[in-house]
């Protein structure tokens, strides 16, 4: 069977599913000043697991919106205007849904797969680790 390290090169999904892989990728993104994209990606996964009947869930949705989408952060810049509007409206109407960040997460993931992930696989951080 493939080692965890070999799987990192197969897909972003494998890399982020491995503790060491996610940690190393995070270090790389910190250096590239775009670690927010990864934190947002994990926040979307965490949000999807939350209980919609828990009052904390609305607060977390608001926190994600405020931290990553409302401002001019790197995440906000990579999202389509319609995606941001949809999330803004959902929060305004307090219509919280487990899938409300799915589209935004997909957009961020695609950008990561095309750019940061490819750069990571040729970075010195990765090569030194290997």
């Amino acid at each position: 069977p493939d080692s965890p390290l070999a799987r990192w090169t197969k897909s972003l999904h494998f890399l982020l599913g491995d503790q060491d892989g996610a940690h190393l990728f995070r270090t790389f993104l910190e250096r590239e000043k775009c670690v927010d994209t990864l934190d947002f990606w994990f926040a979307c996964n965490g949000f999807r697991q939350m209980d919609l009947n828990d009052t904390k869930t609305l607060r977390v949705a608001k926190a994600i919106f405020k931290r990553y989408i409302e401002n001019n952060s790197i995440v906000a810049k990579q999202l389509k205007p319609a995606t941001k509007t949809y999330i803004r409206d959902s929060i305004k109407k307090q219509q919280i849904d487990s899938a409300m960040f799915d589209q935004a997460q997909t957009e961020i993931q695609s950008t990561m797969e095309e750019n940061a992930y490819q750069m990571f696989l040729t970075s010195d951080i990765y090569l030194e680790y290997v």
């Binding site: 965890p4 982020l16 599913g17 491995d18 503790q19 060491d20 892989g21 996610a22 934190d39 994990f42 926040a43 979307c44 996964n45 965490g46 949000f47 697991q49 939350m50 904390k56 607060r59 977390v60 608001k62 926190a63 994600i64 405020k66 931290r67």
Partner: peptide, 20 residues
């Protein structure tokens, strides 16, 4: 009560991969 930042941090941490 947790602050929004704390809640967000917990949400992110909960989704991170655990030890192999």
């Amino acid at each position: 009560m947790d602050s929004e930042d704390d809640l967000l941090q917990k949400c992110i941490t909960s989704a991170m991969p655990k030890q192999r």
